[in-house]
């Protein structure tokens, strides 16, 4: 999908969204009878119509390009969460915390990327995004080590690369 114009990209994202919704319905219900599948189709169409009406299907909110990279990103994110989680746990148990505020620069281009980065910072234990001002985050970190991990910019790069 190298060169697609805007309209076909939009159609493609609609189809992907539809498929995701239907798979989601199937996972939650697990039914295979044709009547129930038909009901499922109706409810999926209803949800699709509602999200179309709520303008939730803009290009920015359904990023097709990154959808294949997401599982790898989640695995990486879980590794990060585990590492900083262990650090936070030891900090809680031995009480050597020294909370501090730092400001972090984000280099993502669109709104989804920035929200993604802010969420990733908050998701890793020990760091919380307090305020977002254009492209600078105010981050509260539980210790100096955690804030320095953040200031090495690794996470920023990974999330910026996600959107290439």
């Amino acid at each position: 999908m190298a060169k697609l114009n805007k309209d076909s990209l939009k159609t493609l994202s609609f189809i992907t969204y539809f498929i995701i919704l239907f798979v989601f319905w199937f996972i939650l219900s697990g039914y295979l009878k044709s009547l129930l599948l038909f009901f499922g189709l109706i409810s999926v169409l209803f949800v699709f119509w509602m999200s179309y009406r709520a303008k939730a299907l803009e290009e920015d909110s359904l990023p097709l390009k990154i959808i294949l990279r997401l599982p790898f990103y989640w695995i990486w994110l879980f590794k990060e969460i585990f590492k900083s989680g262990v650090t936070t746990t030891t900090l809680i148990w031995n009480g050597k915390y020294s909370p501090q505020l730092i400001s972090v620069k984000a280099s993502q281009k669109n709104r989804t990327g920035i929200a993604n980065y802010a969420n990733a910072i908050t998701l890793t234990p020990g760091t919380v995004t307090i305020e977002i001002d254009k492209k600078t985050f105010l981050v509260h970190a539980l210790s100096k080590k955690l804030s320095q991990d953040l200031l090495t910019d690794d996470m920023n790069k990974v999330i910026t690369d996600l959107d290439k």
């Binding site: 989680g85 936070t88 746990t89 809680i92 915390y97 909370p99 908050t122 998701l123 234990p125 020990g126 760091t127 919380v128 509260h140 539980l142």
Partner: peptide, 8 residues
């Protein structure tokens, strides 16, 4: 700081 613990 308590938010960090809740996030854990």
């Amino acid at each position: 700081s308590r938010i960090h613990a809740a996030g854990l």
